[in-house]
Design a protein around this nucleic acid. Structure first.
Lengths: 137, 137
DNA sequence: ATAAGGTCTGTAGCAACTACAGACTCAAGA
DNA sequence: TCTTGAGTCTGTAGTTGCTACAGACCTTAT
């Protein structure tokens, strides 16, 4: 099938390879309305162009940064309408950043407890274990 | 209905309040075999005792520390058989700790990118936004 | 012509819950 | 005694974000 961009139009697997996205995930994003429905060949195959590549990259990059699908949907709606403002986007980003920091704090708390407890383990072939005691407490 | 421990035996809502667990989650843990099936009253109501309280606390504490249901199932199987050793439990804990640290690292990476990008925002009512540019890149 | 691969659809599965509908039971007040 | 309100029962569906099938097409290369 050859992966060179022949004139124009990518098939689904090509878009997947191009963006690093999973094949099925592309169809999923279309189903939930994150990706526009692409035109089809006469036999029903999806045909993607540069706008689809850009859109998918936007989603993937957003997901990498931990934005939820709904957050990204909101961002994209603004952009699609051309009504986005830096103020609004920054507010969403700051909110998301706060969520991320809260998650980090939570994981650090967990890490502390686990590390402190595991440090008390003898690591021997004995039934007593500080970890189990911590869970049973 | 009164929430004092009348002689012995808690109903489901009492166990929930006692442990801070969600009402439905108790039934869920029973369904997936994390909690033993409790005895029932003549009319079919579940009746819990101290062993159920202890078991549920174990699960909830483990979940708070980020252990998966399957990890906890493994731990509990060992304990139920009395075959657990500190060595084995410590190994599971260390593995889990490594997972937690990996998650922290990932979130910190995200935090850095978000903070750095948001810091470049003007925050004004203008359409250009560094966050959107970062997502589109 | 045929075989191998790509694509199509719909659907089911994952984790770990959470919530609801509709039926039943139980205890207390009028 | 009747009623009312709360608690409980069951099964099932929804959540988030994918991922992976099955079975039917289509396309391409040999």
């Amino acid at each position: 099938m050859g992966d060179h961009v022949s004139g124009k139009g990518l098939k689904r697997a090509q878009l997947a390879r191009w963006t690093g996205c999973n094949l099925e995930t592309i169809r999923y994003y279309e189903k939930i309305g994150m990706m526009p429905e692409p035109p089809r060949t006469a036999s029903g195959y999806r045909v993607y162009d540069a706008t689809h590549v850009a859109r998918l990259r936007f989603i993937l990059r957003g997901r990498e940064l931990g934005f939820s699908i709904e957050e990204l949907r909101g961002l994209m709606r603004l952009v699609d309408r051309g009504t986005q403002t830096c103020a609004e986007v920054k507010a969403m980003t700051d909110q998301h950043l706060a969520d991320v920091r809260a998650k980090i704090a939570d994981l650090k708390r967990i890490e502390k407890v686990l590390a402190a407890t595991a440090a008390q383990c003898s690591g021997e072939e004995v039934p007593e274990c500080p970890v189990l005691e911590a869970l049973a407490s």
